[in-house]
Simulated scan of single mutants.
Amino acid sequence: MREYQSLAVEQHGPVAHVMINRPAKANSMDEAFWSEMVEIFEWVDTTDSVRVAVISGAGRCFSAGIDLNMLAQAAGSMVSDIGRNAERIRRNILRLQAAFNAVDECRKPVIAAIHGYCIGGAIDLIAACDMRYATTDAHFSIKEIDVGMAADVGTLQRLPRLIGDGIMRELAYTGRAVYGEEAERIGLVNRVYPDHASLLEAVMDIARQIAAKSPLAIRGTKEMIRYSRDHSVADGLNYIATWNAAMLQSEDLKLAVAAQMSKKPAEFAD
């Protein structure tokens, strides 16, 4: 795996640890970040030996969101024609959305470990993850409203399904800060921990627990959850019936049943 400009990746057995790695800039999301996210999560998706991904921030925080210098450069590239500006802006927004779609659409579970600032674009990122865990001092804010724009990289589309419509609207309209314990109470994160070290230890333990399960069963479970989010109950039931018509013939099912009966852990192929 090559070295990256804005991210760092380590593989610990079946767990890939992806770190936003611009600590001197509060892990703000610069131009390189967006293309590197797509590349890295394509690698996570297609590398059989990786079964779970954890994403965290290096240094003092998770991420302060999009790099404002990047926004300034985009503003400086505008031309006089409104239509051409609109086409350019739209194309760029879709490019940014693709970075977090890569997380959402990854076949492997992705877990966010959040400490310190998690604002603006960082909320878009964690909303695309499967689960979120945080420190008690984690600071969440849908900050886009304070710079005169609507969040456009996934927060407004994904967050209502995590914390409910009413509280999402309050946070999106006011931009107010939410800290770790409130984030847990409203369902933004699953659990909070007293410090960054205990957070990472716990999240890595959860990742290893998931990695020990049948990768086909985990794949099917994530696919069904994602599909059911965007379809009716009837559609979801029909899809799982078709999916499991094949997957229930997997060797993993026999191994899992035998392990349950013998009370010994199963070892599944990648």
Rank of each mutant, 00 (worst) to 15 (best):
K264G: 05
H12Q: 13
V178G: 07
L255K: 15
R185Y: 11
R132E: 06
W43D: 09
L96I: 12
D67C: 06
R51L: 02
P160T: 13
M37N: 06
A212V: 05
P160V: 10
I163Q: 05
T46C: 11
A122Q: 03
A26I: 03
L7W: 05
A98P: 03
D137K: 04
V192T: 14
R88G: 00
L248T: 08
G65S: 10
F33Y: 08
A86Q: 12
I218A: 05
I89S: 02
L159P: 02
D165F: 11
S250I: 13
R60W: 01
A64R: 03
M168L: 04
V54Y: 03
I126R: 06
M261P: 08
E87Q: 10
D165L: 12
A138R: 01
V38C: 04
R161L: 12
D48R: 10
D67R: 00
V178L: 01
L171C: 05
H231S: 08
L156W: 03
E181A: 14
K213S: 12
L171K: 06
I66A: 05
Y227N: 09
A24Y: 07
N85L: 10
A75Y: 05
T46Y: 01
T47H: 03
D67L: 06
C106I: 01
W43N: 07
T46W: 04
A197K: 08
V257T: 15
R60P: 00
